[in-house]
Amino acid sequence: MKLGRRNDLDAVSFHLVMGVLALACIVILIAPTLVVLIVSFTSGFSLKFPPPGYSLRWYAALLDSWQLHFAAMNSFKIALWTTAISIVLGVAAALGIARSKTMTAKVLDSLFMSPLVLPALAFGLSALMLFSVVGLPVSPLTLVIGHTIVCVPYVIRTSVAALSQLDPVLLESSASLGASRLYSFRRITLPLIRPGILAGGFIAFMSSFDNVPVSLFLRDARTDMLPIRMWQDLEGKLDVTIAAVSGVLIVFTVAMMILMERIAGLSRRLR
């Protein structure tokens, strides 16, 4: 009896601690997003929370802000190009290294993954040095090159994971039935790894759209980027317009996330 009660207390305290910490974690994860959404509808001029009243005025102000439109358009174009190049180069590289057990494949894999852990700001500075040594002025081209380096790892990771789940028997039977390698790739490999490619491409797009450390060095006034514009606006003054921009970005992100979860099983591919 006594032992049983001690075990109960033990189990209750364990689950209580785990539950409370997990709840705290959930609050920390959600609260910021909710707070920004609520503040973006404020009728006042400050970021006071709770807002004194609600209105759509800051969203209306957004329509007139050509600087933000310009920066958002730039970011969108660069992210699109970065994603396209990342998918082409990244999927090819994933096919090459996924089933190879050679040392070269291992070295290449670590090389391709290293931008994920090394400080991106140091890479941004070194890329700027390279471009200035070879005499290439900063332009959308240099931005796309820099972004591709830091975004392609996501495409490789999800594509390699998708390829490792592909049953080789399928390719063997396809080949034994006389299909060429290209035909097997088009009709078997590609459809089966497509969700992995989509998920990786989506993350690459979002991380290019959101990139600051690389853009900081590789852009100029003509290629102003949205996150940098927002960051500089926030450093100067706490502008409520930024809350409205954030609101738009949050809604866009959530919608895209739910879409990608439906068509590509996003959450399963990120683990």
Binding site: M230, L234, L249
Partner: peptide, 17 residues
């Protein structure tokens, strides 16, 4: 996943608020 995909500037801005 939401914070992973939301813009870092937006998330940081939230903490300022």
């Amino acid at each position: 996943l939401l914070p992973l995909l939301t813009s870092v500037v937006v998330r940081t801005f939230a903490w300022i608020v």
